[in-house]
């Protein structure tokens, strides 16, 4: 029994590979479809990942300003911080005194523009405030209204239209990706299953002979599973490199155009995504191959 398994692996591999070439065109078509499916899936997923990343970094860099009630003393103003920090969605808050705010303003616009402020220095133009960063930017509306209710907070200012837009885009992209992934996975499984079906028809007589001389079910089936998995894996390897190439090209052109006029678009570098993309592509290729071949085998290779 041990011997059979051992002697078998080489056989299953060579038969699986041979089977691919017997129906070269069909196998090629199957690989092509899987490559296309994976690239479409991959592109949408990478788009989602990048939007996610932008949202997170926007959430970290863009801040909400919560202005402290003018009536409060400095000591009271400082205590507002702890109630802000107690909110669930607050990642971090930094107290900025009105003196600090004035200082920052001057630094930002330079001494020359100082005249803009002439006459205002002592009029409390600037207020004490907290600069707040959030955990989850998609909940910004709730957090703002909660902040506004807090005792000691006179007003809240947030300028996060871009982040909110991205959140909406992410939602749409997610739905589209999910639907596409489901459809494309089904298409991939279907095409592999058809390729294997053709291979089993092709070898009908050989299979009948194998049964007659006492081949086990597993022995008859293995080469077809191997064939399916190989097609899946060849497809995923090809898709991986094409995806890589396309991504680098696209990333290059986006950062190159300086579309950063409005916001700085930070595209993740592919090297950061290399491992997860490789792992996901390999897994998809493998399981699509197994799934496709099992689907056919269960139907056409009974016993």
């Amino acid at each position: 029994m041990k011997k059979r398994i051992h002697g078998g692996t080489g056989y299953f591999l060579t038969e699986g590979v041979r089977s691919i070439f017997v129906h070269g065109f069909m196998s090629f078509a199957a690989v092509g479809v899987i490559v296309a499916c994976l690239i479409i899936m991959g592109s949408f997923t990478l788009l989602t990942v990048n939007i996610n990343d932008m949202i997170v970094s926007l959430g970290q860099s863009n801040e909400i300003a919560a202005f402290v009630d003018e009536e409060l003393s400095d000591a009271q103003a400082l205590s507002v911080g702890s109630s802000i920090n107690a909110l669930a969605n607050v990642r971090d808050s930094v107290f900025v005194s009105r003196e600090q705010a004035l200082q920052d303003f001057i630094e930002r616009f330079g001494e020359e523009d100082r005249k803009l402020l002439e006459g205002y220095e002592n009029k409390n133009l600037f207020r004490h405030r907290y600069q707040i960063t959030l955990m989850d930017i998609s909940q910004i509306d709730d957090t703002i209204s909660t902040l506004e209710q807090l005792r000691g907070v006179a007003g809240v200012r947030a300028d996060m239209k871009i982040a909110q837009g991205l959140v909406a885009v992410r939602g749409v992209v997610r739905v589209i990706s999910l639907a596409l992934i489901v459809v494309l996975l089904l298409v991939s499984v279907f095409i592999i299953s058809n390729t294997i079906k053709l291979a089993t028809f092709d070898r009908k007589e050989e299979i009948a002979i194998m049964r007659m001389v006492g081949a086990t079910k597993a022995f008859i089936r293995w080469p077809f599973v191997v064939q399916g998995v190989l097609i899946g894996l060849i497809g995923s390897a090809a898709a991986f490199f094409i995806q890589w190439f396309l991504y680098e090209r696209l990333a290059g052109s986006i950062t190159g155009t300086g579309a950063s006029g409005i916001i700085s678009i930070e595209i993740l570098s592919f090297s950061e995504l290399l491992m997860p993309v490789a792992a996901v592509f390999t897994a998809v290729g493998f399981f699509v191959g197994v799934g496709g071949s099992l689907l056919t085998i269960r139907k056409f290779l009974k016993v």
Partner: peptide, 11 residues
């Protein structure tokens, strides 16, 4: 030889 391989005979 095929019929032998099918039943797991060694090379």
């Amino acid at each position: 030889a095929f019929a032998m391989r099918v039943v797991g005979a060694s090379h």
